Simulated assay, not measured.
Amino acid sequence: MRLSIDVHLDYAFPEPADVLLQIEAAALPDQRIESESLVIYSDNPIRAVAGEEGIGQRCWARADQRLMADYRAVITVERPVVNLAQLAPTPVRLLPPETVGYLLPSRYCESDRFEHFVRRQFAGLSGGALAVALIDWVRGALEYSSAATQLRGGALTTFAERRGVCRDYAHLLVALARAAEIPARCVAVYAPGVDPPDFHAAAELWLAGAWHLVDATGMANSADMVRVAVGRDATDIAFMTIFGTAFLFAQTVVVRRLDAQS
Results as ranks from 00 to 15, higher is better:
Tyr108Lys: 07
Cys109Gly: 05
Glu110Ala: 11
Ser111Lys: 00
Asp112Met: 04
Arg113Ala: 14
Arg113Lys: 15
Phe114Pro: 00
Phe114Leu: 07
Glu115Cys: 05
Glu115His: 07
Phe117Trp: 11
Val118His: 01
Val118Thr: 07
Val118Arg: 00
Arg119Thr: 10
Arg119Ala: 14
Arg120Ile: 12
Gln121Ala: 14
Gln121Phe: 03
Phe122Cys: 08
Ala123Lys: 13
Ala123Trp: 11
Gly124Gln: 14
Gly124Cys: 10
Leu125Ile: 07
Leu125Tyr: 07
Ser126Gly: 15
Gly127Ser: 11
Gly127Asn: 15
Gly128Lys: 00
Gly128Ile: 05
Ala129Pro: 07
Ala129Trp: 00
Ala129Gln: 14
Leu130Tyr: 11
Leu130Gln: 09
Ala131Asn: 04
Ala131Gly: 10
Val132Asp: 01
Ala133Trp: 05
Leu134Cys: 01
Ile135Asp: 00
Ile135Gly: 00
Asp136Lys: 10
Asp136Trp: 06
Asp136Ala: 13
Asp136Glu: 15
Trp137Glu: 04
Trp137Thr: 06
Val138Ile: 13
Val138Met: 02
Val138Leu: 04
Arg139Glu: 10
Arg139Leu: 01
Gly140Asn: 12
Ala141Lys: 03
Ala141Ser: 13
Ala141Glu: 14
Glu143Ala: 14
Glu143Phe: 11
Tyr144Ile: 02
Tyr144Met: 03
Tyr144Ala: 02
Tyr144Ser: 02
Tyr144Arg: 08
Tyr144His: 09
Ser145Lys: 12
Ser146Ala: 13
Ser146Gly: 09
Ala147Leu: 14
Thr149Trp: 15
Leu151Asp: 12
Arg152Ser: 11
Arg152Pro: 09
Gly153Gln: 10
Gly154Cys: 05
Gly154Phe: 03
Gly154Pro: 09
Gly154Ala: 11
Ala155Asp: 03
Leu156Val: 14
Leu156Ser: 13
Leu156Asp: 12
Leu156Gln: 12
Thr157Met: 06
Thr157Gly: 09
Thr157Val: 15
Phe159Ala: 01
Ala160Thr: 09
Ala160Cys: 11
Ala160His: 10
Glu161Asp: 14
Arg162Leu: 04
Arg162Ala: 07
Arg162Gln: 15
Arg163Tyr: 07
Arg163Gly: 03
Gly164Leu: 05
Gly164Asn: 09
Gly164Phe: 10
Gly164Gln: 04
Val165Lys: 01
Cys166Ala: 12
Arg167Trp: 09
Asp168Ala: 04
Asp168Leu: 03
Tyr169Glu: 03
Leu172Thr: 07
Leu172Gln: 03
Leu173Ile: 07
Leu173Tyr: 06
Leu173Glu: 01
Val174His: 01
Ala177Ile: 08
Arg178Asn: 05
Ala179Glu: 04
Ala179Pro: 07
Ala179Gly: 07
Ala179Met: 15
Ala180Gly: 15
Glu181Asp: 14
Ile182Gly: 01
Ile182His: 06
Ile182Arg: 01
Ile182Glu: 01
Pro183Val: 03
Pro183Asp: 02
Pro183Gly: 04
Ala184Thr: 15
Ala184Asp: 05
Ala184Tyr: 08
Arg185Ile: 08
Cys186Phe: 02
Val187Thr: 12
Val187Ala: 13
Ala188Asn: 10
Ala188Met: 09
Ala188Val: 07
Val189Cys: 12
Ala191Trp: 01
Pro192Cys: 13
Gly193Trp: 15
Gly193Leu: 12
Gly193Ile: 13
Gly193Gln: 13
Val194His: 13
Val194Cys: 12
